[in-house]
Nucleic acid binder design. Structure first.
Length: 470
RNA sequence: GCUCCCUUCGUCUAGUGGUUAGGACGCUGGCCUCUCACGCCGGUAACAGGGGUUCGAGUCCCCUAGGGAGUACCA
């Protein structure tokens, strides 16, 4: 039997990291076993479902590279099928009509709570034979005794007493089917063999197994993956900033970094931290997925992101960096080759946004000097080195990193000072702050005209400072 | 309330009865060095608590505590 897994989000928001990880595990499982991964949109809640959400989910999955083999299937397009199944259940006496009022149901619930019992439908309409002509819902006739065992791939065997379960509604008064019915029918029709989903569904599983059995079907294997908590250990929410997968792209993360981070959240393979997608597919093992919820840690994600930025091809990074430069009002075509800029910053940036910010100096003059850096490096002692460098730069025959490096060394030597005495003031003059790539690469990327212009500005700053002091 | 699930460094985790409880992120000391990073070397820090079982328990059992999910004519 070929493995078939699915990801079944309800389109009521964006693809968040928790859903993305569930999708990843499900996808990985299918890929590992040579199976199929199907995408199903659970949009039966007409009120909350939107096409924007569907697009956002699709976009997130595409960005992460979680391609599906079948679908997307929309539940709203399968209402006839659900009706057919419900009718079959009705015909066999496995479901029944119920016209209990909400008031009665609410009262039932309140009383049960008062008696410290689990709220549950009392089966009032089980044998009443409610007329199909009156407004009614349809309930599934859940077995009254016995236990349902869920042999979960991650949790192990979990037992539920049927006494704890009640006759759940499978069709609303308006005729629309409910979640527990639609998943069961869909998983059955789509021949899903492994249901890998969030553990908020663990409690629904025995109900679904009962419906499946009523339909004469064999339940699939289930694997309930734990949820992801925020940095602070509380439930992941908007409060935590980026929860939507696409926000991570905007924040300058590489998809492979997010994927690598997500796969290691709740799963591990010995001490290995870095996994390419191929390795994930090869090594992923659903049995090794943790049972406990885990907290999202942005610092570690950042570390992985830096790892991939550092390791990836500079051309690709440049391509991905470009829009972030645009966000800063920079057109990378107007200035040094973006690939060279990337190479100079690859080991320094933890995100593409950081890289854009720290490399902006290559394309545009900065507004003001960093206060601390200027105070420390743009002082009287820096005047001569800067003047000498200005003159040397103006006359340099070839603007290459090698020549620039030699120049800084020559000036330092002739002034009989360490290279830092020349390089640091120069760096602050040209970049506006005390940190940048090697001085040779920095000068090279800034270019001759801008270097001279900025050195003049620094010299003016020093003169101004001296005038003020004295 | 009730049902179900979970519990190793701050965080992600290794560990399947005998380990100085390992790795990673973070933080931190040092090296490298024109700065910042990178890289390299070192440090920091954990078995929720209590009972058992056992020669021996992070590992098995029970209880407690703390988290979480569900308890909808949401999914």
């Amino acid at each position: 039997m070929t493995v078939r897994t699915r990801f079944a989000p309800s389109p009521t928001g964006y693809l968040h990291v928790g859903g993305a990880r569930t999708a990843l595990f499900s996808w990985l499982y299918a890929r590992k076993h040579g199976g199929k991964f199907v995408l199903r949109i659970e949009d039966t809640d007409l009120e909350r479902s939107t096409v924007e959400s569907v697009n956002a989910i699709l976009e997130g999955m595409t960005w992460l590279g979680l391609e599906y083999d079948e679908g997307p299937f929309y539940q709203t397009k399968r209402f006839d099928r659900y009706d057919e199944v419900i009718q079959g259940l009705l015909d066999k006496g496995l479901a029944y009509r119920c016209d209990c009022s909400r008031e009665r149901l609410d009262k039932l619930r309140d009383e049960a709570m008062k008696r410290k019992r689990k709220p549950r439908y009392d089966g009032h309409c089980r044998h009443r034979g409610v007329s199909p002509d009156e407004p009614h819902v349809i309930r599934f006739r859940n077995p009254e005794a016995g236990v349902v065992a869920v042999d979960d791939l991650i949790r192990g065997r979990v037992l539920f007493n049927n006494e704890e379960l009640d006759d759940l509604i499978i069709r609303r008064t308006d005729g629309s089917p409910t979640y527990n019915l639609t998943v069961v029918v869909d998983d059955l029709d789509m021949a899903i063999t492994h249901v890998i989903r969030g553990d908020d569904h663990l409690n629904n599983t025995p109900r679904q197994i009962n419906i499946l059995r009523a339909l004469g079907a064999k339940p699939p294997q289930y694997g309930h993956v734990p949820m992801i908590l925020g940095d602070d250990g509380a439930r992941l929410s908007k409060r935590h900033g980026a929860v939507s997968v696409m926000q991570y792209r905007e924040a300058g993360f590489l998809p492979e970094a997010l994927l690598n981070y997500l796969v290691r959240l709740g799963w591990s393979h010995g001490d290995q931290e870095i996994f390419s997608v191929d390795e994930m597919i090869e090594l992923f093992d659903i049995d090794a997925v943790n049972k406990a919820a885990s907290s999202f840690n942005t610092d570690k994600l950042l570390w992985l992101n830096q790892h991939y930025i550092k390791q990836d091809d500079a051309k690709r990074i440049a391509h991905l960096l470009s829009p972030h430069m645009g966000n800063l009002g920079i057109d990378p075509a107007q200035g040094p080759d973006l690939v060279a800029v990337v190479e100079a910053h690859q080991a320094r940036a933890r995100s593409l946004v950081e890289m854009a910010e720290m490399s902006a100096f290559c394309y545009q003059d900065f507004e003001t000097f960093d206060e601390k850096a200027a105070k420390k490096h743009l002082r009287a002692a820096a005047r001569e080195p800067l003047e000498r460098m200005r003159e040397a730069l103006a006359g340099l025959d070839e603007w290459t990193e090698e020549k620039l490096h030699a120049l800084v060394e020559q000036v330092s030597a002739s002034l009989e000072v360490k290279m830092g005495k020349v390089a640091q003031p120069l760096r602050v003059a040209v970049v506006g702050r005390a940190a940048s790539p090697g001085i040779d690469a920095t000068l090279y990327l800034v270019g001759r005209q801008a270097c001279l212009r900025r050195i003049d500005k620094a010299l003016a700053y020093i003169r101004q400072r001296e005038a003020n002091a004295g």
